[in-house]
Amino acid sequence: MKNVTLGQYIPLDSFFHRLDPRSKICAMMALLIAVFIPTGWWGYLIIGTIVIFCVLVSKLQLDFIFKAMKPMLTMLLFLGIINILVIKTGDLWLSFGPINIYSDAVIQTLYIIVRLMMMIMITTLLTATTKPMDMTLGIEDLLLPLEKLKVPTHDIAMMISLALRFIPTLIEEADRILKAQASRGVDLENGSLKEKISAVLSLIVPMFVSCFQRADDLADAMEARGYVVGAQRVRYKTLKFKFGDYVVIIVANILLGLMIYIAVRMSK
């Protein structure tokens, strides 16, 4: 339970950790769009190098990033199998009885794998270097223009920050309940299907009960301290752009422009 890597903040001190969350979010969006522009291998080589360089600068360990990719492995495998079975163009490379593998299928699968891997790297880079609370501040600021359209941006940001705040608490709680039930002989690994279902129930029901309890208590605690939905609030922490932030946004956007240029050139 303690090994949830996806979206976990890693407290280190690096150039990326010190950046303003807004610039990181903007740069991430630009890079994510860039990854999904069909630029062929040259484009990916450029983005890939830059992304790996960024990971090194952020002082995150590479195996941490790979761990974050693990949950995607089954999905990638599944995609690979479908591609190989469906795509029937290009040269015939291999043939086992009824299954024929064509070059386009392999290349297409590789494209998707590379894209997804880079996508995970980029998002992990953001979540691992940004404190959840800073992230919500950033999101709130970036959503601010929507206020004009009567979108409750502050409420959305509050919801996100509450959700993020309670992830570790809920993981801890689930861990505790699992252990408590394990002490009562629950065995999630072995046992028949019926036993497994009752094992899962023994986790889910107490989790639900305690989630509602917590939500109730939290709402009371917030109101007791004067929180009013929709009221104007001041901020304890204000965000400020520094030199590095401008550099990151500009570099990310230049990269996006470059990718579009390459894609346009290729399609001619």
Partner: peptide, 8 residues
């Protein structure tokens, strides 16, 4: 601790 949370 707080064993009452395990009832289901």
């Amino acid at each position: 601790q707080f064993a009452e949370y395990q009832l289901f």
